[in-house]
């Protein structure tokens, strides 16, 4: 069963189509990354799914309900972590979590949750005194406090240093459990590390949808092969590097040295896909 079902989603501001027929599904328990360059429509999509923004057209279902009209019962099953929160600066960490937990029927135990996100040492601290990384951990804790069935993470690690980013990834993976997660990111590495499946959006359209392996396979001709022969170095790109190498050896045998094959990386795939999409979108 799909936890999230988006079909032909459209969003238009004036004459500009920010979303131009976006379609994807997320299975229950799946972690899906919505990947794309800035301005691709990721945040608009996630805000429509959160029920914070009205759409211009298309069909959207989250946990079987239309977020635009879903009630507070639905709201209780959805957790949200925005790009950045600065709210409740005067509150203490444990105080705010306990307060927000009191809105839910079956919330996490606050002590457990604080420990799970690594804030046990800061539980009594005022929120505005937290570091950036600690603040994000708190935001994730708040997103999780009601034991949501679906968790939305919008650009969760923008402006993180690599260390903080790695810690955050560990946290999300540990927290994920059976929660369905939709995260948006423009960081390919992050999508690959966290997500079971990646949907690439660009210019308001889905241009690819699959696991990172499937996406890499989508693009042919991207493997890079380097070798040296008679003291000269050569390099070429080919859709089938195995066959190329076989033919290379058949032809030159032992004259071939320092053979190096670089498989199409997801990064190349991503850049190629975005470039192609932009090529076809141009008039």
């Amino acid at each position: 069963m799909s936890a999230v079902d988006v079909e032909d989603l459209r969003m238009r501001y004036g004459t500009a189509d920010v979303l131009d027929g976006v379609t994807f599904q997320i299975r229950a328990g799946e972690v899906l990354a919505l990947l794309g360059p800035n301005g691709a429509g990721k945040t608009t999509t996630i805000e429509i799914l959160e029920g914070f923004r009205m759409r211009s057209g298309g069909r959207v279902e989250v946990l079987g309900a239309d977020p635009a009209h879903a009630g507070e019962r639905w709201r209780a099953r959805v957790g949200i972590v925005l790009q950045s929160w600065r709210d409740h600066g005067k509150w203490r960490v444990r105080e705010l979590l306990a307060h927000l937990a009191s809105y839910y029927d079956d919330p996490w135990d606050v002590g457990e949750l604080v420990a799970a996100v690594g804030l046990a040492g800061q539980a009594g601290q005022k929120i505005r005194t937290l570091s950036g990384g600690q603040r994000r951990r708190l935001d994730v804790a708040i997103g999780l406090v009601g034991r949501p069935e679906v968790l939305f993470l919008d650009e969760p690690t923008a402006a993180f240093d690599p260390q903080a980013r790695r810690e955050f990834h560990d946290l999300v993976r540990a927290a994920a459990g059976r929660t369905t997660i939709l995260l948006t990111t423009h960081d390919l590495d992050e999508a690959e590390k966290l997500a079971d499946r990646i949907v690439i959006v660009n210019g308001g359209r889905v241009i690819a949808d699959g696991t990172s392996r499937e996406l890499a396979r989508l693009i042919a001709g991207e493997d890079e092969v380097r070798w040296t022969r008679d003291g000269h170095s050569f390099s070429t790109t080919t859709p089938d590097s195995t066959r190329f190498a076989r033919e290379l050896f058949l032809q030159y045998g032992e004259a071939v040295h320092e053979l190096e094959v670089r498989r199409a990386s997801l990064e190349q795939t991503y850049l190629t896909l975005v470039r192609q999409a932009e090529g076809t979108a141009a008039p």
């Binding site: 709201r75 209780a76 929160w85 709210d87 600066g89 927000l100 809105y103 839910y104």
Partner: peptide, 20 residues
């Protein structure tokens, strides 16, 4: 002020949070 710093949005993200 609560609107600017996101306190209100937090309430909106919480079930029945606006009433609270």
């Amino acid at each position: 002020a609560d609107r600017e710093d996101g306190t209100l949005l937090r309430a909106k993200a919480t079930p029945d949070g606006m009433r609270g």
